[in-house]
Amino acid sequence: MANVNIKFNGKNFLLSCDDGQEEHLEELLNHINEKFSNLKNNLGNLGENKLLLITSVQIMDEYFETKKKVDQKKTELQNLSNKFRELKSLVYDYKDKKEEELKQLSEDHENFKKEIEKNKEDYERIIEAATNEIENFVEKANLENPVQ
């Protein structure tokens, strides 16, 4: 335990605090002493107890206003965090959907290529068959009607 000697309202006090917290305690007491002195200057000497009470009320008011703002910011941060998670989920869903669409397009493309290749082969067979029939027809016609 550490001890801190402070001066408040013209009186010296010896306060104890955890080791390493001396500067923090002095900072807090300086803040309280400043508020107390400002009230004393503004309101006059209403009595130490009443000034201490008013100082305490002001400090608690500041504390609660700050706490309210912190709580509000926590809520806003939580809402932003939730929206971010929702957006992240939407992005991943969109990505998965697009990957599935690309996969389907790729499969369709492969099927279309196979169909084109098959149609090409069928066309070549038809052309080959038609060519053979024409050649046979011409041969037959030449045999039946020799050139004179």
Rank of each mutant, 00 (worst) to 15 (best):
N3H: 10
V4W: 02
V4E: 05
N5W: 13
N5V: 13
I6T: 01
L14T: 08
L15F: 02
C17L: 00
D18S: 11
G20R: 00
Q21E: 10
Q21N: 04
E23F: 04
L29D: 00
N33P: 02
N33E: 11
E34C: 11
N38Y: 14
N41L: 03
N42A: 05
N45C: 03
N49P: 01
N49R: 09
K50W: 15
L52P: 04
L52S: 08
I59Q: 01
I59C: 01
M60I: 02
D61T: 05
Y63E: 09
Y63V: 08
V70D: 05
V70M: 09
D71V: 06
K74A: 11
K74W: 15
E76A: 12
Q78A: 08
N79V: 05
L80C: 14
S81V: 05
F84Q: 15
R85T: 14
E86I: 09
E86T: 14
L87G: 04
K88D: 15
K88F: 07
S89L: 12
D93G: 09
D93E: 09
D93P: 10
Y94L: 15
K95R: 10
K97I: 05
K98G: 07
E99S: 09
E100D: 10
L102S: 08
N111F: 11
N111E: 10
K114C: 02
K114L: 02
E115N: 12
K118E: 08
N119R: 10
E121V: 06
Y123Q: 14
E124I: 09
I126M: 09
I126L: 10
E128D: 08
A129K: 15
A129Y: 13
A130I: 06
N132A: 14
E133D: 09
E135K: 03
N136C: 14
N136D: 15
K140W: 04
A141W: 15
N142E: 15
N145M: 12
P146F: 09
Q148L: 13
